[in-house]
Amino acid sequence: MKIKIVIIILFFALSLLTGWADSWEALKQNGTQIKSIKADFVQEKHLKILARPIISRGIFIFKAPDSLRWEYKSPVRSILLMHNGKTKKFMERDGKLIEEPGLSLEAMQMVIQEISKWLAGNFNDNPGFTAGLETGRRIILVPKNQAMARLISKIELKLSDRPGLLDSVIIYEGPDSFTRLTFLNAELNRQTDDSLFVEK
């Protein structure tokens, strides 16, 4: 009987040691279980000339397979919407949210789009980046293309201890400039209406 108890304890101990972020396969498997995520985010822009980072706050809502609402609440309101392959962006002007015509995706918006793929567990699918899975639930993405490397030198993802979630994303533009996105108050797999991804 004692041996059985020891085996059971060992089994649980081992299951705790083998996390959801130990292999690309485990990450993909967990990603498929994510139906939706809602979380707050804090964006810190660090730049050598800044005495303090510029702090922006907002919310993001993701619904599988690829719907995303990325909304800045402060200091300037802006909403990026992705749904059924269409992307729209709204910016606040004179107190009103106005759609940006002819939206062109900047490098950072490309990263935001990538987040929806990461939440689906696809971290190493982008042919433009070399992905490395490191200890401490960290993933490092390095651009393969020289043109992209001039815009973004490296992306560092910190995975949460809750399967399927990201704690933070750090986008390095160069040695003196990086942007850290930290996710807070995440809610998983709650009922999420499609209108959130098409209406401002």
Partner: peptide, 9 residues
Amino acid sequence: ALMTIEGFI
């Protein structure tokens, strides 16, 4: 510095 709202320089 001039940057986008997403922080891109």
